[in-house]
Amino acid sequence: MTDDFYRNVGGIREPDPTLGKSVQPEPAPEPVLPEPEPPPRVRRQRVVLAEPSRSAGSLRARVELEQQTSWGELLIKDLIKVQLRSGVALALLVLAVLGALPAVFFFWPSFTDLRFVGIPLPWLLLGVAPFPLLFGVGLWYNRLAERHERDFVDMIEN
């Protein structure tokens, strides 16, 4: 029954946060009313510890973003624009490469007779080559997008 009293981390009960400290204002009301009160006290302590990392300036920026002031709106619009631009650019790159293949096969039929290690070149170009290309572009976009987001967060926090 006292399981709810202390925080559980990965199934392992954490020790009493006040353990070993010389603060002990109230003796022990636990056996009387274990259920409703104690957990919030433990949690409140954590929130207070986490707070100082966020400066007052970042809080104001967040509020401005949320309240849709013209400045906040402009900021988020810029972020959307830069994300969309990198997405479209990479999509066009892939479309240009893959879309060129059928055209090459059609307008230049002798190309399809070329062989590489005995395997017809079109089969290598269609059966193997696109997959590393797609994965590479995916990685690239992931890096770009995460960088844009990090820049945005940095800007808000300063």
């Binding site: 997405g87 479209v88 990479l90 999509a91 892939v94 893959l98 017809p120 079109p122 089969w123 269609l126 059966g127 696109p130 997959f131 797609l134 572009v137 995916g138 976009y141 992931n142 997008a145």
Partner: peptide, 24 residues
């Protein structure tokens, strides 16, 4: 034959489009 190789390409490339424009 060779024309069918577009199916696996398209099945995979669909995820790139999803990632670029939709996922996050």
């Amino acid at each position: 034959g060779a024309d069918a190789l577009w199916f696996p390409i398209g099945f995979t490339a669909g995820y790139l489009a999803l990632m670029l424009f939709v996922a996050a």
